[in-house]
């Protein structure tokens, strides 16, 4: 356990500044975008009123109504996409930096006493903690953005909406149901574990064999899924709820398989 905490802290320490920088940048960009959207709307309104000699109500009508919070936070989806991209790239980098960094830290890691699974778990924990941080900070940014929106924009120019507005991306991430947050984290865990598997496979075999092995593992996910779908469509032997149960069970089994494979590669196949 101590080794796990020490390794996790080490991993977080190595990316600490980068992570905080990206978090800060995302927050600043998002808040700036909200201010920009609000001021831009007001400026368009004023322009319309001046040029076409309209009342404010008429000008608002021409602009398709008041500025919604969804419109004000329109750029958030790009920041969320950047956050997701960063996470996936980081999941690769957290391994490759140990092989290709200025020092061969992977030697040190693999020679540490105790089980090698701790290395895997510490890296997994690090990426997941970063994901949780992204989600949490994004939530706080939404709250601050809401305050900004309400403060900068006169009330009659605001459209009534729920706290996260109408943005599809935000509504998908923040359903206010705790179970959904864990579903999202479970999905993140699955994707990160897949990335880890690709890295460890590449580090365990020669190029050609590594590619084939990765292709095989991807096929092991996709082919049975398609086959099940085809089987259910053809035979209808299970009702939809039962089908969903089978799909979910398959995903769970596959997740256990890729986790087991990661551990196995790390213990027996990975080469420096």
């Amino acid at each position: 356990m101590k080794k796990f905490f020490m390794l996790s802290n080490e991993e977080i320490k190595r990316s600490f500044k980068l992570y905080l920088s990206i978090l800060t940048m995302l927050v600043i960009v998002e808040l700036t975008s909200v201010v920009y959207q609000v001021l831009h709307y007001q400026s368009k309104l004023e322009d319309l009123m001046k040029k076409e000699r309209l009342t404010e109500m008429e000008a608002v009508d021409q602009l398709n109504g008041p500025l919604t919070f969804g419109d004000a936070t329109n750029y958030f989806k790009y920041m969320i996409a950047i956050g997701i991209m960063f996470t996936i790239l980081y999941a690769f980098q957290i391994w490759y930096r140990d092989w290709y960094g200025e020092s061969k830290y992977i030697y040190r890691l693999l020679m540490l006493p105790g089980k090698r699974i701790t290395i895997l778990l510490s890296k997994l924990t690090t990426v997941l903690v970063f994901v949780c941080g992204f989600m949490g900070i994004q939530w706080i940014t939404i709250l601050i953005s809401r305050r900004l929106y309400e403060w900068l924009l006169p009330e009659h120019l605001q459209a009534a909406s729920k706290i996260i507005g109408e943005s599809a991306a935000l509504n998908m991430l923040y359903t206010f149901n705790v179970i959904d947050t864990f579903v999202i984290l479970a999905l993140a865990l699955f994707v990160i574990t897949m990335v880890f598997l690709f890295v460890l496979t590449e580090r365990s075999y020669q190029k050609g064999k590594a590619l084939l092995t990765i292709a095989k593992d991807v096929a092991l996910l996709i082919v049975p899924f398609i086959a099940l779908r085809y089987l259910f469509d053809l035979t209808s032997m299970l009702i939809p709820n039962q089908q969903v149960f089978v799909y979910l069970s398959f995903i769970l089994i596959y997740f256990i398989y890729i986790s087991w494979k990661c551990v196995r590669l790390l213990n027996h196949k990975v080469s420096i």
């Binding site: 101590k2 190595r14 960094g101 020092s103 830290y105 030697y107 040190r108 540490l112 006493p113």
Partner: peptide, 25 residues
């Protein structure tokens, strides 16, 4: 094992590297 290249992260100081090893061994 003493390899022919550096295995401790570059950002560590010598003291930190020693402390790191002391913690694990």
């Amino acid at each position: 094992f003493v390899p022919d290249l550096s295995t401790m992260p570059g950002y560590m100081s010598v003291g930190e590297a020693i402390a790191y090893m002391r913690d694990y061994y």
